[in-house]
């Protein structure tokens, strides 16, 4: 039996909204410790990794590990009916369940229940090495969203370079070019923290960075981690309960 109640149901809704443009079908991997999602986009350019620890839920029971295969667009349709202060209770049988039951409860008088059909999804789980990164940038999530949205009008590739003076986001395109420099700042309102061992410069597809910023409502700050010649990690922490992490393979000079 899998049964778990998330008091702030809107957190789960925000997770599905954040990933549904990148991931069509995915497994909710439920275990005693957590509910997790790991999936590549269809082009295998990026990877989404979601974690919600059991402690994020007010009641959590998972008798044995289970993978619940969902279509994110269909899940999103059901979550449209979630009230903004509703809790969600998830229920599924142990042995290859056909459906996932979700109860939406808000005020005392209304309980809505929905059943989402599940499917078998064959996925390759990728092992992500837990290695330290050369540069880690923490900045406001809405500021990062604004930067990648603004730069997309100039071109499709963004160079992110982290150096002594700060983090530079640069785009070169047909109509011209642009640079946005973000420097370390202690100001409470828009604090920027940059930890750098060695300068790093990598190129990324703005289209994907824009997809990632769909997770902005989940977190006040985003953490961007880079090392030479490896995928960037764009992490949206979910309080102390988990995260949505996006990994994006860099573009390489031919």
């Amino acid at each position: 039996m899998f049964e778990a109640q998330l008091v702030e149901g809107k957190t789960f809704k925000a997770i599905i909204e954040a990933i549904k443009d990148l991931v069509v079908d995915c497994n909710l991997d439920c275990s005693e410790e957590e509910v997790a999602i790991q999936s590549m986009d269809s082009a295998h350019v990026s990877l989404v990794a979601v974690r919600l620890s059991a402690s994020a839920f007010s009641n959590y029971r998972c008798d044995r590990p289970n993978s619940l295969g969902i279509n994110t667009a269909n899940m999103s349709k059901i979550l449209k009916m979630l009230g903004k202060d509703d809790s969600i209770t998830f229920k599924a049988e142990d042995e290859s369940p056909d459906s996932l039951t979700m109860l939406f409860e808000g005020g005392k008088s209304t309980i809505a229940d929905f059943e989402l059909k599940l499917m078998d999804i064959e996925t390759e789980q990728l092992g992500i090495p837990d290695t330290p990164y050369q540069c880690t940038i923490q900045m406001r999530a809405d500021e990062f969203q604004r930067i990648v949205r603004d730069l997309q009008v100039l071109g499709d590739t963004c160079t992110i370079s982290c150096g002594k003076e700060g983090v530079r986001f640069s785009v070169t395109g047909a109509i011209g070019n642009g640079n946005i420099l973000v420097r370390s700042s202690d100001e409470d309102k828009d604090k920027v923290t940059i930890n750098m061992e060695e300068p790093v410069e990598l190129n990324f597809a703005l289209r994907y960075l824009n997809f990632f910023t769909k997770a902005t409502p989940l977190a006040e700050n985003v953490v961007i981690s880079m090392s030479p010649d490896v995928p960037v990690v764009v992490e949206y922490p979910i309080e102390e309960f988990g995260h949505v992490k996006f990994y994006l393979a860099p573009k390489i000079e031919e």
Binding site: M40, H44, V45, S46, L47, E124, Q125, L126, G127, I128, P129, T157, N203, A205, V230, P231, Y247, L248, A249, P250, K251, I252, E253, E254
Partner: peptide, 14 residues
Amino acid sequence: DMKQGSISGFFAVK
């Protein structure tokens, strides 16, 4: 020109 790398080229299948 730049070529888009693949994420599966960086992380091995478990």
